[in-house]
Protein backbone atom coordinates (compact mmCIF):
# COMPACT_ATOMS: atom_id res chain seq x y z
CA UNK A 1 0.00 0.00 0.00
CA UNK A 2 2.71 2.43 0.85
CA UNK A 3 5.27 3.89 -1.45
CA UNK A 4 7.97 1.34 -1.92
CA UNK A 5 10.55 3.82 -3.09
CA UNK A 6 12.65 5.37 -0.38
CA UNK A 7 12.53 9.13 -0.75
CA UNK A 8 15.32 11.20 0.74
CA UNK A 9 14.09 14.13 2.79
CA UNK A 10 16.22 16.54 0.81
CA UNK A 11 14.37 15.70 -2.39
CA UNK A 12 11.01 16.70 -0.83
CA UNK A 13 11.70 20.33 -1.70
CA UNK A 14 9.57 19.62 -4.79
CA UNK A 15 6.68 21.08 -2.83
CA UNK A 16 8.15 24.59 -3.00
CA UNK A 17 10.08 24.14 -6.23
CA UNK A 18 7.96 25.16 -9.21
CA UNK A 19 7.69 22.51 -11.87
CA UNK A 20 8.71 24.41 -14.98
CA UNK A 21 6.96 21.95 -17.28
CA UNK A 22 3.70 22.42 -15.40
CA UNK A 23 4.17 26.20 -15.55
CA UNK A 24 4.43 26.06 -19.33
CA UNK A 25 1.47 23.68 -19.56
CA UNK A 26 -0.54 25.96 -17.29
CA UNK A 27 0.14 29.16 -19.18
CA UNK A 28 -0.46 27.51 -22.56
CA UNK A 29 -3.69 25.85 -21.48
CA UNK A 30 -4.83 29.01 -19.73
CA UNK A 31 -4.17 31.26 -22.71
CA UNK A 32 -5.97 28.83 -25.03
CA UNK A 33 -8.94 28.77 -22.64
CA UNK A 34 -8.91 32.56 -22.42
CA UNK A 35 -8.88 32.99 -26.19
CA UNK A 36 -11.67 30.47 -26.73
CA UNK A 37 -13.83 31.82 -23.94
CA UNK A 38 -13.26 35.42 -25.06
CA UNK A 39 -14.15 34.62 -28.63
CA UNK A 40 -16.89 31.99 -28.37
CA UNK A 41 -18.46 32.17 -24.95
CA UNK A 42 -18.35 35.51 -23.15
CA UNK A 43 -19.71 37.64 -26.04
CA UNK A 44 -22.67 35.27 -26.44
CA UNK A 45 -23.50 35.19 -22.77
CA UNK A 46 -23.09 38.97 -22.50
CA UNK A 47 -25.28 39.49 -25.54
CA UNK A 48 -27.90 37.11 -24.19
CA UNK A 49 -27.93 38.86 -20.83
CA UNK A 50 -28.10 42.29 -22.48
CA UNK A 51 -30.91 41.13 -24.76
CA UNK A 52 -32.80 39.71 -21.82
CA UNK A 53 -32.24 42.92 -19.86
CA UNK A 54 -33.54 44.90 -22.86
CA UNK A 55 -36.49 42.54 -23.23
CA UNK A 56 -37.30 42.85 -19.54
CA UNK A 57 -36.89 46.61 -19.73
CA UNK A 58 -39.11 46.68 -22.83
CA UNK A 59 -41.69 44.48 -21.13
CA UNK A 60 -41.64 46.73 -18.10
CA UNK A 61 -42.03 49.81 -20.28
CA UNK A 62 -44.84 48.14 -22.20
CA UNK A 63 -46.49 47.09 -18.96
CA UNK A 64 -46.17 50.64 -17.61
CA UNK A 65 -47.56 52.04 -20.84
CA UNK A 66 -50.40 49.53 -20.83
CA UNK A 67 -51.18 50.35 -17.23
CA UNK A 68 -51.17 54.06 -17.99
CA UNK A 69 -53.46 53.47 -20.94
CA UNK A 70 -55.69 51.27 -18.84
CA UNK A 71 -55.85 53.95 -16.18
CA UNK A 72 -56.62 56.53 -18.85
CA UNK A 73 -59.34 54.33 -20.32
CA UNK A 74 -60.70 53.66 -16.87
CA UNK A 75 -60.76 57.38 -16.16
CA UNK A 76 -62.54 57.98 -19.45
CA UNK A 77 -64.94 55.18 -18.68
CA UNK A 78 -65.63 56.62 -15.25
CA UNK A 79 -66.14 60.04 -16.81
CA UNK A 80 -68.50 58.60 -19.39
CA UNK A 81 -70.26 56.59 -16.76
CA UNK A 82 -70.69 59.74 -14.74
CA UNK A 83 -72.00 61.57 -17.80
CA UNK A 84 -74.26 58.65 -18.64
CA UNK A 85 -75.62 58.63 -15.11
CA UNK A 86 -76.22 62.36 -15.28
CA UNK A 87 -77.86 61.96 -18.67
CA UNK A 88 -79.96 59.07 -17.49
CA UNK A 89 -81.03 61.02 -14.44
CA UNK A 90 -81.88 63.95 -16.68
CA UNK A 91 -83.79 61.65 -19.02
CA UNK A 92 -85.67 60.13 -16.11
CA UNK A 93 -86.39 63.62 -14.78
CA UNK A 94 -87.60 64.75 -18.18
CA UNK A 95 -89.66 61.59 -18.59
CA UNK A 96 -91.14 62.16 -15.17
CA UNK A 97 -91.90 65.76 -16.03
CA UNK A 98 -93.31 64.73 -19.40
CA UNK A 99 -95.38 62.07 -17.71
CA UNK A 100 -96.65 64.57 -15.17
CA UNK A 101 -97.44 67.08 -17.89
CA UNK A 102 -99.09 64.39 -19.94
CA UNK A 103 -101.04 63.25 -16.94
CA UNK A 104 -102.16 66.77 -16.18
CA UNK A 105 -103.06 67.34 -19.83
CA UNK A 106 -104.89 64.05 -19.92
CA UNK A 107 -106.72 64.96 -16.75
CA UNK A 108 -107.58 68.40 -18.13
CA UNK A 109 -108.63 66.86 -21.42
CA UNK A 110 -110.69 64.27 -19.59
CA UNK A 111 -112.29 66.96 -17.55
CA UNK A 112 -112.98 68.93 -20.74
CA UNK A 113 -114.45 65.83 -22.34
CA UNK A 114 -116.50 65.20 -19.28
CA UNK A 115 -117.61 68.80 -19.20
CA UNK A 116 -118.38 68.67 -22.89
CA UNK A 117 -120.23 65.40 -22.43
CA UNK A 118 -122.12 66.92 -19.56
CA UNK A 119 -123.00 69.96 -21.62
CA UNK A 120 -123.97 67.76 -24.50
CA UNK A 121 -126.10 65.73 -22.15
CA UNK A 122 -127.69 68.86 -20.87
CA UNK A 123 -128.29 70.01 -24.39
CA UNK A 124 -129.72 66.63 -25.33
CA UNK A 125 -131.91 66.72 -22.25
CA UNK A 126 -133.03 70.22 -23.07
CA UNK A 127 -133.72 69.21 -26.66
CA UNK A 128 -135.57 66.10 -25.50
CA UNK A 129 -137.44 68.19 -22.99
CA UNK A 130 -138.31 70.68 -25.66
CA UNK A 131 -139.45 67.97 -27.98
CA UNK A 132 -141.41 66.40 -25.20
CA UNK A 133 -142.98 69.75 -24.38
CA UNK A 134 -143.83 70.27 -28.01
CA UNK A 135 -145.37 66.83 -28.09
CA UNK A 136 -147.22 67.61 -24.87
CA UNK A 137 -148.42 70.90 -26.34
CA UNK A 138 -149.61 69.17 -29.42
CA UNK A 139 -151.28 66.51 -27.34
CA UNK A 140 -152.77 69.11 -25.06
CA UNK A 141 -153.88 71.12 -28.06
CA UNK A 142 -155.50 68.11 -29.62
CA UNK A 143 -157.14 67.23 -26.34
CA UNK A 144 -158.16 70.77 -25.83
CA UNK A 145 -159.74 70.96 -29.26
CA UNK A 146 -161.43 67.68 -28.72
CA UNK A 147 -162.67 68.77 -25.38
CA UNK A 148 -163.81 72.10 -26.73
CA UNK A 149 -165.63 70.41 -29.60
CA UNK A 150 -167.36 68.10 -27.19
CA UNK A 151 -168.22 70.94 -24.87
CA UNK A 152 -169.31 73.33 -27.59
CA UNK A 153 -170.65 70.61 -29.87
CA UNK A 154 -169.20 72.69 -32.56
CA UNK A 155 -166.54 71.88 -34.95
CA UNK A 156 -163.85 74.43 -34.99
CA UNK A 157 -162.13 75.16 -38.21
CA UNK A 158 -158.52 74.54 -38.30
CA UNK A 159 -157.32 78.12 -38.21
CA UNK A 160 -159.54 79.05 -35.39
CA UNK A 161 -158.69 75.97 -33.50
CA UNK A 162 -155.07 76.60 -33.83
CA UNK A 163 -155.25 80.19 -32.87
CA UNK A 164 -157.33 79.38 -29.91
CA UNK A 165 -155.14 76.57 -28.70
CA UNK A 166 -151.95 78.45 -29.27
CA UNK A 167 -153.26 81.30 -27.32
CA UNK A 168 -154.30 79.00 -24.55
CA UNK A 169 -151.00 77.17 -24.47
CA UNK A 170 -148.98 80.29 -24.49
CA UNK A 171 -150.76 81.28 -21.38
CA UNK A 172 -149.62 78.02 -19.75
CA UNK A 173 -146.23 77.81 -17.97
CA UNK A 174 -144.23 74.68 -18.76
CA UNK A 175 -141.16 75.74 -16.92
CA UNK A 176 -142.02 73.37 -14.11
CA UNK A 177 -141.98 70.43 -16.50
CA UNK A 178 -138.77 71.46 -18.10
CA UNK A 179 -137.09 71.70 -14.69
CA UNK A 180 -138.78 68.51 -13.57
CA UNK A 181 -141.09 70.25 -11.03
CA UNK A 182 -144.25 69.97 -13.17
CA UNK A 183 -147.60 71.66 -12.63
CA UNK A 184 -148.95 74.97 -13.82
CA UNK A 185 -148.85 78.25 -12.12
CA UNK A 186 -152.55 78.95 -12.65
Amino acid sequence: MLSAAATPLASRSFLITPNVGLMIWTIVVFVISLLILRRLVFPRIGEALDNRAKAISGDLDAATHTREEAEKVLEEYRERLKEARAQSEEIVQRARQAADTHEQEAKAKGQDILAEAAKKGERDIEAATRRALDDIRKEIADLTILATEKVTRKTLDTADQRQLVEQALNELDFSGISTGQGGSQN
Binding site: M1, L2, A6, T7, F14, L15, N19, L22
Partner: peptide, 18 residues
Protein backbone atom coordinates in the same frame (compact mmCIF):
# COMPACT_ATOMS: atom_id res chain seq x y z
CA UNK B 1 4.04 1.03 11.95
CA UNK B 2 4.46 -0.18 8.40
CA UNK B 3 8.12 -0.70 7.43
CA UNK B 4 8.19 2.26 5.01
CA UNK B 5 6.72 4.51 7.66
CA UNK B 6 9.13 3.30 10.29
CA UNK B 7 12.06 3.84 7.95
CA UNK B 8 10.87 7.30 6.95
CA UNK B 9 10.55 6.27 3.32
CA UNK B 10 6.84 7.04 3.30
CA UNK B 11 5.69 10.60 3.49
CA UNK B 12 2.16 11.81 2.77
CA UNK B 13 3.50 14.75 0.78
CA UNK B 14 5.03 12.36 -1.71
CA UNK B 15 1.58 11.97 -3.19
CA UNK B 16 1.97 15.52 -4.48
CA UNK B 17 5.18 14.79 -6.34
CA UNK B 18 4.85 15.19 -10.09
Amino acid sequence: KAPDVASGAFSPVDEFRL
